[in-house]
Simulated scan of single mutants.
Amino acid sequence: MSLKKHVILITGAGGGVGSAAAITLAQAGAHVILLDKSIPRLEKTYDAIIAIGAPTPIMYPFDLAGATENDYQELANRIEFNYGALQGLLHCAVEFVAFTPMALLDTKDWGHSLNVNLNAPFLLTRVLLPVLQKSKTASIVFTSDSAVRVAQAYTGAYGVCKIALEALAKILAEELESSNKIRVNVLIPGPVDSPLRNRAFPGEDKAELPPVTSLASTFLYLFGDASIGITGQTIDARTLHL
């Protein structure tokens, strides 16, 4: 599958799932824009993409929690100026510390989690919609979590954000469906050996988990021609047969 001439922005591109997605999509020919607050992690993903001879990516250090609306708009303006259009947006950035009872969750942690896990995807998607609409077809993917996508005890602000994020995606998909240009879906990676999984379940036997690279075919499906016309869906990588 070729993604040549595709420009795809990936948040959390220095993390486990985000980095794996960036490398996979770049290897398929896409020009990826790597967004993350950590420059060392961005550089690691950048170097991995260069090492496989894929198109040179763009690193864009960006703090989703601390950015203003003007910062988001400036990012959208730069993408439109440099590329004219955007063919893909993958939300992988995540803020998670630990499972916490609501009674012990302080206001600062609650607000920070909402900023990164819910407000940021909304703001970024909103400012990039005009750039995505300039493409013949485009794909927006929100990443959720199989461990918290239903209301469960101790999932705290992280769980609330993921449940709300899935609702946001479905509402947006319905609003954009009539234009038949931008598809919006939710990705459930399932348990994979990633830094997030390690923080959430530190005692788990990681040898039994599939690597993040096992998601490669799912990323290619979501941003390739095979998923054109598929929108408003929650796609679980564990049950997707390609």
Results as ranks from 00 to 15, higher is better:
125 T>E: 03
127 V>I: 09
144 S>P: 15
183 R>F: 05
141 V>F: 05
128 L>Q: 01
127 V>D: 01
170 K>C: 10
203 G>A: 12
176 L>Q: 01
178 S>C: 08
128 L>D: 02
109 D>H: 04
157 A>V: 00
90 L>R: 02
89 L>N: 04
165 L>K: 05
93 A>E: 09
137 T>R: 09
159 G>D: 02
102 M>D: 09
198 N>P: 08
93 A>Y: 11
169 A>S: 11
131 V>M: 08
131 V>Y: 05
136 K>A: 13
119 N>W: 10
133 Q>V: 02
89 L>E: 10
171 I>A: 08
95 E>N: 12
149 R>T: 15
103 A>C: 12
140 I>M: 13
118 L>A: 05
107 T>W: 13
186 V>W: 11
136 K>Q: 13
147 A>Q: 15
205 D>S: 13
135 S>C: 02
184 V>N: 03
167 A>R: 14
101 P>A: 04
152 Q>I: 15
122 F>P: 06
177 E>W: 15
127 V>E: 00
123 L>N: 10
149 R>I: 14
187 L>H: 03
189 P>R: 01
163 I>M: 12
131 V>D: 01
199 R>S: 14
98 A>G: 05
97 V>P: 03
140 I>N: 10
109 D>Y: 02
132 L>E: 07
108 K>I: 04
90 L>N: 05
118 L>P: 03
135 S>M: 07
117 N>P: 05
162 K>C: 05
159 G>H: 03
106 D>M: 06
105 L>A: 09
160 V>Y: 07
123 L>W: 14
93 A>D: 10
99 F>V: 06
125 T>Q: 02
160 V>P: 09
164 A>M: 04
171 I>S: 12
176 L>M: 10
162 K>D: 04
179 S>G: 11
91 H>V: 05
90 L>E: 11
199 R>Y: 11
180 N>P: 10
133 Q>E: 14
127 V>H: 00
140 I>S: 04
135 S>A: 11
95 E>Q: 13
200 A>Q: 10
146 S>T: 13
134 K>Y: 00
102 M>I: 12
166 E>G: 11
202 P>G: 06
207 A>T: 15
197 R>C: 08
168 L>I: 09
109 D>R: 00
161 C>Y: 04
155 T>D: 03
158 Y>A: 00
185 N>H: 05
135 S>W: 04
186 V>Q: 14
148 V>L: 09
103 A>W: 13
148 V>P: 12
100 T>K: 13
101 P>L: 06
92 C>A: 12
92 C>S: 14
